[in-house]
């Protein structure tokens, strides 16, 4: 039977680089025996002395990490910030784009509503898990090998500070404001002109309402550019914003409420329950989101405009502090 000391030393050596093993083996044994001898001399029984010595040395895996100069963490503080930024960016920006593209592809393919929702949910989960896993794996490897560590480390300078005034709105955020209307227009057109399947929305509205929505969406995009160049909030902005918001919200709610929104020929709500029920609840849901969203947006822009006019500071979300947009 192997002794406790043997078992301890073997366990520690397993995780030590091969080149150092023989040397650490000898040294560790000598050190353990020295400590045991000292305890025996002090009057302890040998067996108890061995146990006490090994307990004091602690977890052999940890000792091995210490010998091999390995860190007891996956991603250290040096790389953590960079890892977090990349992960957040992937999950908040890349993942939605991937899911959106897949959904559009499925719509074009004429898949049923249930299938599309299923794909969206499962893609979000699978792709999200993959993104986090592979990023973490790469960072963990970099942490251990030290390769390209310098490049991944976040180098910060005052230039990286975000700008909060709307006129300094980074071009990326403006692009974000333009992508939404563009996506809606694309979706509106694509759902009609898919090669197979029946359009989701009522084709009868192409005589007026769908082109009308396209025009309003284009105007909303133009509004974003205008606001970006104007660089402040005022009463004109409030009015223009309110008009544009109502111009899309009111007809949308009306179409939904009078059952003119969905295509009567579209029967692919399958899998979620009785068709009329699904249509009904979906309509209510869209109406709810539209009303609340529109009201909040109009109110928020009006409040900003009013505050700037009075020279009051505008709260920056998440800081608790204030900032004067007008000043």
């Amino acid at each position: 039977m192997t002794s406790l000391v043997d078992r301890y030393v073997y366990t520690a050596l397993r995780r030590v680089p091969e080149a150092q093993r023989a040397d650490i083996d000898r040294e560790l044994r000598a050190s353990i025996e020295d400590a045991v001898d000292a305890r025996v001399e002090a009057g302890e029984a040998r067996e108890a002395a061995v146990e006490a010595t090994l307990t004091e040395l602690g977890d052999p895996d940890k000792l091995a990490d210490s010998y091999a100069n390995r860190s007891g963490y996956l991603i250290g503080p040096e790389l953590y910030t960079s890892w977090r930024r990349l992960t957040v960016m992937l999950l908040s920006t890349v993942l939605p784009v991937v899911v959106a593209v897949l959904v559009v592809v499925q719509v074009v393919d004429g898949k049923s509503f249930g299938t599309i929702v299923g794909t969206a949910v499962s893609t979000t989960l699978t792709v999200g898990v993959h993104m986090v896993f592979w990023t973490t794996l790469i960072y963990a490897i970099v942490e251990r090998t030290g390769a390209v560590k310098d490049k991944l480390r976040v180098k910060w300078s005052v230039k990286d500070l975000p700008k909060y005034e709307p006129d300094r709105m980074p071009i990326a955020r403006l692009a974000g404001g333009l992508v939404w209307p563009a996506l809606l227009i694309a979706a509106l057109i694509l759902q009609q002109f898919t090669l197979s399947g029946v359009p989701v929305l009522d084709p009868a509205n192409w005589s007026f309402w769908w082109p009308y929505f396209i025009v309003v969406l284009v105007l909303q995009g133009a509004y974003q550019v205008w606001l970006w160049r104007l660089g402040t909030w005022n009463r004109t902005v409030t009015v223009v914003n309110a008009v544009l918001q109502l111009a899309s919200a009111v007809p949308l709610v009306w179409l939904l409420a009078t059952d003119q929104f969905f295509n009567p020929e579209f029967h692919n709500f399958a899998g979620l329950g009785a068709e009329s029920d699904v249509k009904h609840w979906l309509s209510l849901l869209i109406i709810g989101i539209t009303v609340v969203g529109t009201a909040y947006d109009i109110f928020e822009v009006a409040r900003r405009g009013e505050r700037v006019r009075r020279g009051e500071p505008i709260k920056i979300t998440g800081t608790g502090g204030s900032y004067n947009y007008g000043g």
């Binding site: 150092q20 560790l28 400590a35 040395l57 602690g58 940890k62 000792l63 210490s66």
Partner: peptide, 12 residues
Amino acid sequence: VEANTLYPLLRR
């Protein structure tokens, strides 16, 4: 000082 810190430290 603990043995498990000192011994690896000497090698380092």
